[in-house]
């Protein structure tokens, strides 16, 4: 009996470690390749620890294309997208959670069902709309939608958080003559700061990682984001794996840093996603 328990425990760890290796090996392989020279990267059997560490790959990869420009472009898009989502999503979610008006549930229902709509359906008409306004090849089509409620998923998430705050708190304030705006700013927002962090982090990642949006809307190189720059890099240096891996690492790094800073919030946010199931 005791033996069986040990075997079982061993098996559990074995599977977990195997899964962990599957998750980590590609990332380790990326980083080790980004720090090697062309000769070492191909050596057999594979070398895991670069010798010497070639940090020069990064500066080389970064100077081949104007990655500084791409970095600034991406950052501008990400910041204004996050701002838009946080401001308009929190206000809208407040209305859906705390205010009653005719048609509210209908609108909310439509919002929820719009989550099932493939982006492919709205992509083309939206693109044509922006091009009629002469705004393609600018950041506006990538940022503007964030300023209109910040997406159904985020509204849903924030509304869930707001609903978990006891109504007594704002009702007391309401009876004392506080306006909705006052309640929203001085009760709801401070109490749901973690929720805003969750939404902010998800938005950061989605915007930072976005590929299709920039691909469709941006066509002059000076407007490119990092993801597009990387794609272009691939076309030019497909065989220079060490440089490609260095460039990919640079794009990946900010996402990883943000993830580790906000890890706790990420887990909480995804957990909430599942609760609606």
């Amino acid at each position: 009996m005791r033996n069986r328990a040990w075997v079982e425990k061993g098996l559990v760890y074995l599977v977990l470690v195997a899964g962990g290796l599957f998750s980590l090996l590609p990332l380790i392989w990326l980083i080790r390749s980004s720090l090697m020279d062309m000769g070492q990267i191909f050596e057999l059997p594979p070398i895991w620890i670069p010798d010497p560490f070639r940090f020069g790959n990064f500066s080389e990869a970064l100077t081949i294309l104007p990655f500084g420009r791409y970095f600034i472009n991406t950052t501008v898009i990400v910041i204004f997208t996050m701002l838009g989502v946080l401001v308009t999503c929190s206000i809208s979610a407040y209305s859906f959670a705390r205010m009653s008006w005719r048609g509210r549930d209908l609108v909310f229902g439509l919002l929820l069902s719009s989550m099932m709509l493939p982006y492919a359906v709205t992509l083309i008409p939206t693109f044509i709309g922006w091009s009629k306004l002469g705004l393609t090849n600018s950041f506006i089509p990538l940022i503007a939608p964030a300023w209109f409620g910040g997406g159904a998923f985020n509204i849903f998430l924030l509304r869930q958080f707001y609903l978990s705050i006891p109504r007594d708190l704002d009702e007391a304030a309401y009876v004392d003559g506080a306006s909705h705006w006052r309640i929203f700013i001085s009760i709801i927002i401070p109490l749901t700061r973690p929720a805003l962090v969750v939404v902010g982090l998800f938005t950061f990642l989605a915007s930072w990682n976005d590929f299709l949006g920039p691909l469709v809307y941006l066509n002059s190189e000076s407007k490119y984001t990092l993801a597009l720059g990387l794609q272009q890099f691939k076309g030019m240096y497909a065989a220079e794996w060490h440089l490609m891996m260095a460039a990919a690492t640079v794009v990946l790094a900010p996402a990883i840093v943000v993830f580790f800073i906000g890890q706790r919030y990420f887990i909480e946010g995804i957990t909430l996603t599942g609760i609606k199931a």
Partner: peptide, 17 residues
């Protein structure tokens, strides 16, 4: 969870390699 935060373009590079 870590791989899910990797940008799709970087995922593609890693796996191409």
């Amino acid at each position: 969870y870590l791989p899910s935060i990797v940008p799709i373009i970087a995922i593609s590079f890693i796996w191409l390699w």
